[in-house]
Nucleic acid binder design. Structure first.
Lengths: 128, 128
DNA sequence: TTTGACTTTTACGTCAAGGTCAACGATAGT
DNA sequence: ACTATCGTTGACCTTGACGTAAAAGTCAAA
């Protein structure tokens, strides 16, 4: 049956605006089909959007996301390009590992904050 | 001896610009001392800057970072405020867990990309 | 004493990632 | 025929996080 999603359907699902999806198309991240002028999103488009949003959440820029998408749909054939890509991948990996560490440290801090809150609440609770 | 850091000393250490540090001061994130007009950064300022940059890396806005700093230097005493804070903490935690998952998924994908590169390189290498 | 490296403030510029608004077309329901 | 709903394009606007340039002060070395 090959389902199509409308633009608002997707904006509702992902909590984004139509402007955002049109912007992503302008930026060449997605290429939904058209019936007349209206966009028709296929499941593949939907999945791509999910990955774009994931990239966005971890702080990738549009340009970076576009680059990643490019690699997927048109992997480099030449040797030099491949080596270059592998370097970029290693860089990104290092960046992500750092970010993950930052997140874990911050999560640990949040634990402390929460504990401090609980302690304080107990004090107040006892006092009243 | 109570060491002081100069502004450029810190910009070099952290790979940021003087503009950034002055901006952070304008935004009320840091409060370096002064000798005349020139800023003098103490170790405590330095550590605070490290934490600011960590917040930045994981995508916190200046406003969010300021809020966190506030909580640390002036924790809420009232009960309602405490409960409110705990809710905010739980929200942040959920956000960070999501981000961590996003990062781990992306790291896994990077592994795949690298493997594909290696395979491809091997093919090319054999062919020549 | 002049050069160089550092510092300051003020103020306008920039860039990414959308928001917002206007003006309009297509389609369905009443 | 009118209204609602959903879609379109195009243009300008906004916000966050700084960049950049101007004009000037401080201090040590050559």
């Amino acid at each position: 049956m090959n389902k199509y999603y409308s633009i608002t359907e997707l904006t509702r699902e992902f909590g984004i605006s139509t402007r955002t999806l049109r912007f992503y198309e302008d930026e060449g991240l997605i290429h939904p089909e058209r019936r007349g002028r209206t966009r028709l999103f296929r499941p593949a488009d939907r999945r791509l959007i999910q990955e774009i949003l994931r990239g966005r959440r971890i702080g990738f820029t549009i340009a970076e996301i576009r680059e990643i998408i490019q690699v997927y749909k048109d992997p480099p054939g030449e040797m030099g390009q491949l080596r270059l890509l592998m370097n970029r991948v290693e860089e990104k990996r290092e960046e992500l590992r750092q970010k993950r560490k930052d997140i874990e440290d911050t999560l640990a801090e949040l634990d402390n904050v929460e504990e401090a809150c609980l302690t304080r609440l107990a004090e107040i609770g006892v006092g009243t």
